[in-house]
Design a protein around this nucleic acid. Structure first.
Lengths: 186, 186
DNA sequence: CGGAGGTTTGACGTCCCTCAAGGTAGGTGG
DNA sequence: CCACCTACCTTGAGGGACGTCAAACCTCCG
């Protein structure tokens, strides 16, 4: 309902890799319903307010409300589409483009729920968190953020993101929001 | 029904990033049903035999067969779980571990459909394909495969994979098959 | 026999990591 | 109100993993 959460997985050394970041309005744990258990971990990035839905209630919905079921299914496949985009980001983009891409994605998601005006928004993630998102170290994340500032594309200061040149940022991050299916979320 | 397919996305330079590899038995394009359209591309790696299911038939199933619907939903979330594992692989593992992890994953999937005996199987992917899967160049993939052979872990020759030391390969790739939910696929 | 696609190898460059040190801001207790 | 602590941010130097470029080779097939 409120706050920021993330999904992550740990490697053998205990280092985290974030696999998703969730904002207010997301149905976070729906994957656990058809799967039975969850293959990864959840954590909050801020204090959060969450609503819970018993699996039994979802089973009931599946029988009585196929259209609503399809919407829930849709929302989990939206997560899958974002996962694919993250794979692309980690596999094909260099560090600075990864950061740009992620910032564009989170801005788009926040704007969809009225948490961003298109240029400025609150993002409660440390540079270490951002590094674990983009598959780079916190030190290198710091250098990339400096470079984004130097290039007049965006700044982050005290969890506050300011996008100076949205088009330039999207271009650098090869960001195309069609995978977020904003024309279809109702 | 038969053959190998993959899902992929292109970057601005036209280089591919594979985001999934599908084997015989997978329901490949089910994501397009709730989503409405597909945010990525599909290609075959070999000649394939495919079965098609009209979306209208799936709509019918959702009304009359909620249990079967949940199974289909499950199968798409399995894809999502694999996507997460690919994110982890690209974000946290170095090149040789990425290859090991992928080989372990595809071996496990093939074994589940009787296409691998646990040590040997057919994998119709070039070193360039494997590179596009693991986010490294074909040249570096070649070096990693040589190293895996030198370390007595596995060999690939003419699309034939031979795993010499399965435990060692899984260890190197930090591979844990629980995300494949093999205890739950019926 | 020749060509195309795939594999292998070497030399060299660069992006990012590692390690280390210092700086900054907010929070807590004296 | 100051002292201190902790978490986070910033910067530098040096090294290593992987990319790039180029050439040779191998294998299949027409």
């Amino acid at each position: 309902m409120e706050g920021f959460m993330c999904r992550y997985m740990d490697d053998q050394k205990g280092d985290r890799q974030l696999v998703a970041v969730h904002v207010a309005g997301d149905f976070v744990d729906l994957h656990g319903f058809p799967l039975g258990y969850l293959d990864h971990d959840l954590a909050t990035l801020t204090a959060c307010q969450v609503a819970q839905v018993p699996h039994a209630a979802l089973d009931g919905l599946m029988v009585t409300r196929p259209n609503l079921t399809k919407l829930l299914w849709f929302s989990t496949l939206l997560d899958a589409a974002m996962h694919r985009e993250w794979i692309f980001r980690l596999g094909r983009l260099d560090a600075i483009a990864r950061v740009s891409h992620f910032i564009c994605e989170i801005e788009t998601k926040l704007r969809a729920v009225g948490r961003s005006d298109g240029s400025s928004f609150h993002l409660p993630m440390t540079q270490a968190d951002l590094g674990e998102t983009c598959g780079i170290t916190a030190v290198h994340m710091n250098r990339m953020l400096r470079e984004l500032k130097d290039r007049q594309l965006m700044t982050i200061r005290r969890n506050q993101v300011d996008i100076i040149n949205p088009a330039g940022l999207a271009e650098l991050g090869e960001f195309d929001p069609s995978y977020l299916f904003l024309d279809n979320t109702g």
